[in-house]
Design a protein around this nucleic acid. Structure first.
Length: 934
RNA sequence: AGGCGCUUAGCUCAGCUGGUUAGAGCACCACCUUGACAUGGUGGGGGUCGGAGGUUCGAGUCCUCUAGCGCCUACCA
């Protein structure tokens, strides 16, 4: 084996071997293990399908690490495990990408026509989709590629058609002219969720609308309205005041003359109006504002649409404004009103501006014909499923978010005026009457329409989420009752981010319950967002994104700068991004390999918190990989060519250390099971790291060194056996988190531990065995560690060279101390680098020494010629100070008159501690006296 | 406006149903090329847990108030 672990040299090899072996495919796994799948419990995860034209970012890598750990864990536990991969067609996003590419060649989508355009999108999908699947493969994710799906493949398309037709049959789909959020650039409706409202600086314009039948001269001849969108006044059909507003009450029922339009509109009363805001008079534009629309409905107001789909003024408006862009019209209208003397004032005003989440363009409420899903009933079932415990959120507080949205749900506009997506299976006849069905022939048959009736299919497509909502079962073959569907629905867990609880989680829950009568997943594990080291959200425009593969492979500073500053939407940011990058990664990024990156994600995955990605942490875990690698080298070196109890035929005995590490291992195994069950991957990672590094490597390997040198062949064999078997088990424990390293090493270690098989992936996950827990051995080794630490501390603080073998005196040793000294003598000598301890009677006069306390006894390292008095005094003073402070606290506790209320056990413990502290203190003080007297 | 979350060593974070002297990694200081590993070893320094009050024999851990930060929802023209 090489001296250092080199991830590059093994990763590609194992990726290929695992996939080629079929180890990701449930059927093959069952076959190789000789198990009948029907007898295995089922476990399944559907990958949240990434956008097919994107690339995977840190958030994906993080979530995939979690999903793969769960998948490998359950596979090893003997579950019939499926992790199903796939990608999403991402209607709007993908269409925009391709349109942008075409635009670069000066081509418009409409120039090509629907057919040709879609061909181009499919081409791009084929090209780009490979990037994602390669990334997934490289990270070692054990997804079943034989079941890969795409949200727009034939199977998923059939499911979407079925969904729409059945919902329609169930009376949950309707088509209607409604006010929707309209993106004037994309020329499509979008759902509420696709609108991002942010506070922006704007103005509040105050306009005077003259009252009919009054003169302006008396100062009461007009009503002043306040608006943030002056251009909408062209579509005003009323002016509203609060019914109890004394300023205006007498005007209710009168009419005002709408300036510029020469229309008379009524003054109405509605308690929606806020008297405090603006002038207390609101202009009402039912066609271009959601509230106004609702008010228009309440008061039967006419609805005048004044915009074209791309937000220019249409022919409903007076001639001078027609054809103007909305913002040009705004300017013009304000000017014209000003010249008429109808502008009362203009004040600065902060307002929430709604923008399309894809285009960033201000969205207009716009009246169009669209398809909607009636959500009320669906939402109620989804709420109930969580209340009844059929579906559980981890962490649990995300239920609030889920509930809140479902309780206030609005009908879902599912049609998009886009080409790229599932086309709506609805047909229209010449009169515009619509028919819904799985196909045109079905529609004709069902509605008895002869071929003479011309039918045209709806031009629109579905909201991407309308198909994503089916993902947990469309992937398994629904609406067919496939074996896969029966086997793996409901899925076991959904791993995703909180940002799509509404978009996706809730909608999957609703559709799953509606169509399959069961929740789509038993548990929803919500991960935090991966942020950069400074806590900022990673985004291309900020130039702070990290490509997971750049951490895996490493990247030079120059390449990283180039990558972050090229292809920016705002090139002027380049200099700033470059500076920040050079500051943050002055040396570029060192390669850490897949295992270290995956382990880092797991270690950072604490609950309910975003994670700041810390590259130095990843470097630390790369070191951990190397540590394991070298521990393996040590083990191999020491057992090579020697029997390690593979066939159990030769006698072996286990030392205290052997029994100790095996006992510790059982406890770690139990912890691992618990942490997996609770999704506490941070604690899992910590627990494994701690065991392997701080117990197995730091102590057990060191303890094994003298043991391997004894004359006792059976004891040697026992140590070799333990060395190998604990390592082999640790590898299996760690495998779901570090697949590559553990596989590579396991191949070499397994035969020595009498294990065989093509891959560690197919081995059982270690389970704790209660009968191998050995408390006496643990106590013995704790004692031993205390002794060694005591001597090391003296050595360290006295600056005695590590190699020097010291004499050691022990005073006040109890009977059990004496037994331990005798039994653990070789370990004591080797690890503490001392001569065999010399026992002193309690009353004996000791030579001048540096001392340490261990239980009731005192360790003494004679100082003759070794130690400087001041250093030892300083060391003692520190210890005394600490002890005094601790003792003080204990005394206060015990002396509290009410301490008697505490449980007996707690009281006893406190008194024992008090006694020990007092003893230690007096021993230390006596020692101080002696040293001072020198 | 409503909801959720965060504030613990220089940095990034653990600390479960309240119980011994608050932990880890990284960073820092000193010593060490000891045959698994310098991507290492050994020893060490460093926090009183945002602030105030309360409950309790006992609070980082529960309650109230308060300060700061972040996120999500929401129809104020």
């Amino acid at each position: 084996m090489e001296k250092t672990f080199d991830p590059k040299s093994i990763e590609a090899r194992w990726c290929e071997a695992w996939e080629a072996g079929g180890y990701y495919t449930p059927e093959t796994v069952a076959e190789l293990s000789g198990t009948n799948r029907a007898t295995m419990p089922a476990y399944s995860i559907m990958i949240p399908p990434p956008n097919v034209t994107g690339t995977l970012h840190m958030g994906h890598a993080f979530q995939h690490s979690v999903m793969d750990a769960l998948t490998r864990y359950h596979r090893m536990r003997g579950y019939d495990t499926l992790w199903l991969p796939g990608t999403d067609h991402a209607g709007i996003a993908t269409q925009m990408v391709v349109e942008r590419q075409l635009a670069a060649q000066g081509i418009k989508r409409t120039d090509l026509g629907r057919e040709k355009f879609l061909e181009r999108v499919w081409e791009w999908k084929e090209y780009s989709g490979g990037t994602i699947t390669n990334q997934i493969r490289r990270m070692g994710n054990s997804v079943d590629w034989t079941r890969e799906r795409f949200t727009m493949d034939a199977q998923c398309n059939a499911a979407v058609t079925e969904e729409f037709v059945r919902l329609h049959e169930d009376g949950l789909i309707y088509r209607g002219k409604r006010l929707v959020n309209w993106d004037p650039v994309l020329l499509t409706a979008i759902s509420d969720l696709e609108v991002e409202s942010k506070e922006e600086a704007g103005k509040l314009w105050h306009f005077r609308y003259p009252l009919v039948g009054a003169t302006l001269a008396d100062g009461t001849g007009h009503l002043t309205v306040a608006t943030t969108r002056p251009e909408t006044m062209l579509g005003d059909t009323a002016v509203a005041v609060h019914p109890e507003d004394d300023r205006y009450r007498h005007l209710i029922g009168k009419t005002v003359r709408l300036p510029l339009c020469d229309r008379e509109i009524p003054v109405i009363a509605d308690d929606y109006v806020d008297r405090e805001f603006g002038t207390g008079v609101v202009k009402i534009t039912p066609a271009h504002d959601f509230n106004d629309y609702a008010m228009g409905q309440r008061h039967q107001l006419p609805v005048i649409n004044i915009f074209t789909p791309n937000a220019q003024i249409n022919d409903e408006a007076p001639a001078p404004y027609r054809g103007l862009d909305r913002y040009d019209a705004r300017k013009r209208i304000v000017e014209d009103l000003e010249s008429l003397g109808l502008v009362d004032k203009i004040v600065d005003h902060k307002l929430m501006v709604p923008r399309g989440d894809r285009t960033g363009v201000v969205v207009e409420p716009f009246l169009t014909d669209q398809w909607f899903v009636d959500m009320k009933g669906l939402a109620e079932r989804a709420l109930k499923a969580v209340k009844d415990g059929q579906m559980r959120f981890v962490p649990a507080n995300w239920v609030n978010t889920y509930d809140q949205w479902l309780e206030n749900i609005q009908d879902w506009c599912i049609s998009r005026n886009l080409w790229w997506g599932h086309r709506i299976p609805a047909w229209y006849d010449a009169e515009g009457k619509h028919y819904v069905g799985r196909s045109e022939p079905e529609v004709r048959a069902r509605h008895k329409l002869s071929d003479a009736v011309a039918l045209t299919q709806d031009e629109d497509s579905f909201d991407t989420w309308f198909s994503s909502a089916l993902w947990p079962f469309s992937t398994l073959g629904w609406p067919q009752q496939t074996g896969d569907l029966q086997r793996w629905y409901p899925t076991s867990v959904l791993v995703t981010g909180f940002d799509i609880i509404f978009f996706w989680v809730a909608r999957m829950a609703m559709m799953g319950l509606h169509f399959l009568n069961d929740v789509p997943f038993r548990e929803v594990y919500i991960t935090g967002l991966v942020r950069d080291g400074e806590g900022n959200k990673m985004s291309k425009s900020k130039g702070n994104v990290l490509d997971p593969l750049d951490l895996v492979d490493g990247i030079s500073l120059e390449d990283l700068v180039k990558k972050r500053t090229s292809g920016l939407m705002q090139p002027q940011m380049a200099a700033k991004i470059e500076a920040a990058t050079r500051r943050q990664f002055p040396e570029g990024i060192e390669a850490v390999g897949v295992d270290a990156l995956r382990f880092t994600f797991m270690a950072l995955a604490s609950t309910g918190r975003d994670i700041r990605f810390d590259a130095s942490r990843a470097a630390g875990y790369r070191n951990f990989c190397n540590k394991i690698w070298n521990a393996t080298r040590f083990v191999l070196m020491n057992v090579e060519g020697k029997d390690c109890g593979q066939d159990e035929s030769l006698p072996f005995t286990l030392s205290t250390a052997d029994r100790w590490i095996v006992s510790r291992l059982q406890k770690v195994e139990a912890e691992a099971a618990e942490h997996f069950a609770n999704y506490r991957f941070d604690l899992l990672a910590q627990s494994l790291y701690q065991f392997i590094w701080n117990e197995y490597c730091d102590w057990y390997l060191e303890l094994s060194k003298p043991a391997l040198q004894t004359d006792d062949e059976a004891a040697q064999r026992g140590s070799r056996r333990t060395l190998v078997r604990v390592l082999e088990t640790s590898l299996r424990l760690l495998h779901p988190l570090m697949p590559f390293l553990t596989e590579e090493v396991w191949q070499q270690i397994a035969p020595l531990a009498a294990k065989s098989g093509p891959s560690i992936m197919l081995q059982p996950y270690p389970q704790a065995q209660a009968d191998r827990i050995d408390d006496p051995a643990e106590a013995d080794i704790e004692w031993l560690k205390g002794l060694i630490l005591g001597v090391r501390q003296i050595r360290g603080e006295m600056d005695i060279s590590p190699g020097k073998v010291l004499p050691l005196l022990v005073q006040g040793a109890s009977a059990s101390d004496r037994v331990r000294i005798e039994q653990l003598l070789p370990s004591i000598q080797f690890l503490a680098r001392v001569e065999p301890p010399h026992l002193l009677e309690a009353e004996a006069v000791a030579p001048e020494s540096a001392t340490a306390r261990l239980g009731g006894m005192t360790l003494l390292v004679p100082m003759a010629g070794l130690i400087d008095k001041d250093a030892e005094l300083a060391r003692l003073a520190r210890q005394v100070a600490k002890l005094e402070s601790d003792l003080g606290k204990t005394q206060t506790r015990v002396n509290n008159p009410n301490f008697g209320k505490a449980p007996e056990a707690v009281q006893q413990q406190a008194r024992a501690m008090l006694e020990k502290q007092q003893q230690d203190l007096s021993a230390l003080q006596a020692q101080q006296e002696r040293i001072r007297a020198l």
